[in-house]
Each structure stands twice: as structure tokens, then as C-alpha cells.
């Protein structure tokens, strides 16, 4: 019975593979379409948005609504994970790693934090942005949990703090969008405030602020996910 099922699965796979290959090889090799949005964006992005990084301009200005949907997906995943895994028990700590590792990370962690902030804030000048920098910030909480024990992480940033950080980041994003409506434009229009010329740090209107909001939201979200997942796994290790 299971032999038949295996053969059936391999037939499905090979049919799918042949279909995909045959269809895709008939696609044109050249990608050139006169009506494409590529032309408009690469010709006008610097003038219209003020950011040197075109990918950031698309993500946080032309298609900022997609970034709103994407950060809501992370928020929904975090809520779902907390719904399923959280119990009102006190965190049980592990011993953490050895002394050398603890000392090394004691010296490294501020630099990791600085690096994360650098990537978030320079999103419009170099590769980076809110999502990438947010992941780096989230990894600091994960480092605390692994290297120093989850009780240390609980005392430093309790889950309440992380929830407040996450929701503040999300509210900052939506607030900037609504501010666009209040100031007479449409939702998520690029407010050209505090603009000091293309190429400097304070430029590109509201893009750095959206980056900051998203960075905190992603960082806190990843920290909450990790903390919820390890909550019950240290019980056996305590009596080591």
C-alpha cells in the first residue's frame, strides 16, 4: 500500500516538474516592456522621495501599504504564538553558557545594538532598512536568553515591555499614515518634513521614521516569539 503511495507521489512530482519546465522555457528571454513601472521608478525616485536607495523608496514610499500588511503578518504570527504557547507560569531559568562566552558577549552586545541602529537609520542611504535592522535588534534578546539564561532576559525586558515596544512601533507606522491624511494628502503620503537635502541622514521625509517604527516592531516581535517558544523547555535542565 505504501509502495503504491510512493509511486503515486513520484508521478505527481515528475508531472509537475515537466509541466513547469515546458511552460517556462517558452517565456521570452528578454525582459523589456515599455509600460513597466521600472522606468518611472528609476528615473524619478530620487526626485520624488529623496532617498538614494531605490529598494527602500519602493518599500516605504511607493508601496508602503504592502509593508504595512507585511508587518501586520508578523504581528498576527506573534499574537498566534503567544495565544498557543503562553502559560502564566514563572520563567524557569537555565544556567547559560560558560564564563568566557558571557564575558565576550558582555563586551560585544553594545556594538551589536549600535550596528542594528545604524542599519535601521541609514535605510535610505545604503542597503538596509527597518526589517533588516529589526532582526538584528531582536537577536540581542535571543543572545541574552541563550548566553545568560532566560531569567536574566525576563528581568531585563519583561514580556510586557516587549509588547509595549511592539505595539508602539506599529502605532508609529499607522500614526504616520494618518498624519498624512490630516496634513491634507492621502494615507501614507511622504511627509516632507525635516528635510535637509538628498544624501544626508535627515532626508527622505518620513522614510526614516517608518524605518524606526518597523525596526522596533520586528525586533520585539522576534524576541517575543523566541521567549514564548523556550518557556517550557528548561524545566528538566534545572536539576543538572
Amino acid at each position: 500500500m505504501s509502495k503504491a503511495k510512493n509511486i503515486f507521489k513520484i508521478i505527481i512530482l515528475s508531472l509537475l516538474g515537466i509541466t513547469l519546465l515546458v511552460h517556462f522555457n517558452k517565456l521570452p528571454l528578454q525582459f523589456e516592456y515599455a509600460n513597466s513601472i521600472y522606468h518611472h521608478i528609476t528615473n524619478n525616485a530620487v526626485k520624488e522621495t529623496g532617498s538614494l536607495n531605490f529598494v527602500t523608496a519602493i518599500l516605504y514610499d511607493y508601496r508602503a501599504y504592502d509593508s504595512l500588511g507585511e508587518s501586520t503578518i508578523i504581528f498576527g504570527a506573534v499574537s498566534g504564538i503567544v495565544l498557543l504557547l503562553s502559560r502564566k507560569t514563572l520563567p524557569v531559568s537555565s544556567h547559560g553558557l560558560s564564563f568566557i562566552v558571557k564575558r565576550t558577549f558582555g563586551m560585544l552586545t553594545p556594538f551589536i545594538f549600535l550596528f542594528g541602529i545604524y542599519i535601521i537609520s541609514h535605510g535610505h542611504l545604503s542597503p538596509g532598512g527597518g526589517f533588516q535592522g529589526g532582526v538584528i535588534l531582536g537577536s540581542i534578546s535571543i543572545i541574552f536568553s541563550i548566553v545568560y539564561g532566560s531569567e536574566f532576559d525576563y528581568k531585563r525586558y519583561s514580556p510586557t515591555t516587549k509588547t509595549l515596544l511592539e505595539t508602539s512601533g506599529a502605532l508609529l507606522f499607522i500614526g504616520l499614515g494618518l498624519l498624512g491624511i490630516v496634513m491634507g494628502g492621502n494615507f501614507l503620503v511622504n511627509l516632507k518634513i525635516l528635510n535637509s537635502g538628498v544624501g544626508s541622514l535627515i532626508s527622505a521625509g518620513s522614510i526614516p521614521f517608518i524605518n524606526i517604527g518597523i525596526g522596533f516592531k520586528i525586533g520585539a516581535g522576534l524576541a517575543i516569539i523566541f521567549y514564548s517558544m523556550i518557556q517550557k523547555t528548561f524545566k528538566e535542565e534545572v536539576n543538572l
Partner: peptide
């Protein structure tokens, strides 16, 4: 082309949240 890069960034984040939830 910068547009596919933006779409793929969104796709990576979606894939990561889906995997996190499935592992939970």
C-alpha cells in the same frame, strides 16, 4: 530592477512568520 527586490523582501518576511508559526 528594484521592484522584485522589494517584493522578495516582503516574501521572505512572510515565509519566516509562516515557518515560525508552523514550528509552534
Amino acid at each position: 530592477d528594484p521592484v522584485p527586490q522589494a517584493l522578495i523582501l516582503t516574501g521572505i518576511v512572510i515565509g519566516a512568520s509562516t515557518s515560525a508559526f508552523l514550528l509552534t
